[in-house]
Computed example of a mutant assay.
Amino acid sequence: MTMRFQLLSLVVIVSLAARGNCIRCYSCGSLEKGCDDPFDSSVVGSVECTTYNTSSYYGTEYEACYKAKLTIAGITSVIRGCGDVDVGNQCETYSGVEYCYYTCRTDECNGATFITSSVVLLMTSALTYLIIR
């Protein structure tokens, strides 16, 4: 086998391994113990994000986890759950109200204080670059 074929095979395997039947996300709100930052995964459980146990508006499978953070007059509220799409990380401020929305695509990734991109995506991109180069 050539090196190029081996790398392509590895990229395909890693990409397929990253896609399971559904993603697992932490699901909670600030009123629940352990959900705020700093997050406590020993108290908060995760759920499989299927259309059967969560409310998907369009009946689609969930592909991402999210963490939404709202700060009003110094009081912060956090919500974690399943999301339809990965929109990245973004924060907006309107009239003194800060709203941040973080998304990610790996199991239980929405437990972190800051959510980063998937390691699998980074590896796939790097290997693809090496193959094409």
Rank of each mutant, 00 (worst) to 15 (best):
C35A: 08
N110R: 02
C65F: 04
Y99Q: 07
P38K: 05
S55H: 09
V78E: 00
E61F: 01
R80G: 04
T106R: 14
N110A: 01
S56Y: 04
A18F: 06
D84P: 00
Y94G: 04
S42H: 08
L16D: 03
S27I: 13
C82V: 04
C82L: 08
G81Y: 02
R19D: 04
T60C: 00
L16T: 01
Y26K: 07
S15H: 04
K33A: 13
N89G: 08
D37K: 04
Y94C: 00
V43E: 06
C82G: 02
I23D: 05
D36T: 10
A18H: 09
Y58C: 00
Y99C: 00
G96H: 12
D86G: 05
S30V: 01
E92T: 11
V78M: 03
G29R: 04
T113S: 14
R19M: 07
R24K: 15
I75D: 11
E32S: 11
T103C: 12
C65T: 05
D37F: 00
N21F: 15
V85A: 01
T51D: 01
C65H: 03
C22L: 02
G20F: 08
D40F: 01
T106V: 14
E108L: 13
S46G: 10
Y102I: 09
S55I: 07
I75E: 13
A18W: 01
Y102P: 02
T106D: 13
C28S: 03
G34T: 02
G111M: 06
I115L: 15
Y102A: 03
V87D: 07
G88W: 12
A68F: 02
C28K: 03
S95W: 03
K69G: 05
V87A: 09
T93S: 08
F39H: 09
S77W: 03
Q90D: 14
G74H: 02
N21V: 15
A64G: 11
D84R: 00
I115K: 13
E92C: 01
Y66A: 08
G83F: 14
E63M: 11
T103H: 11
A112D: 13
V47D: 11
C82W: 07
A112W: 11
I72A: 07
C65R: 03
S55E: 12
N53A: 06
Y58G: 10
E48C: 08
C65Y: 03
A68G: 11
C109P: 10
C91A: 13
I23S: 10
V85S: 12
G96K: 08
E48K: 13
V43C: 01
V78C: 09
A17S: 15
K33P: 07
S27A: 15
Y57P: 00
R24M: 02
S95H: 06
L70Q: 05
Y101I: 10
D40C: 09
L31Q: 12
T76K: 05
T103Q: 09
L70G: 00
S15P: 00
D36A: 07
G20A: 15
Y58L: 11
S95K: 12
D86Q: 07
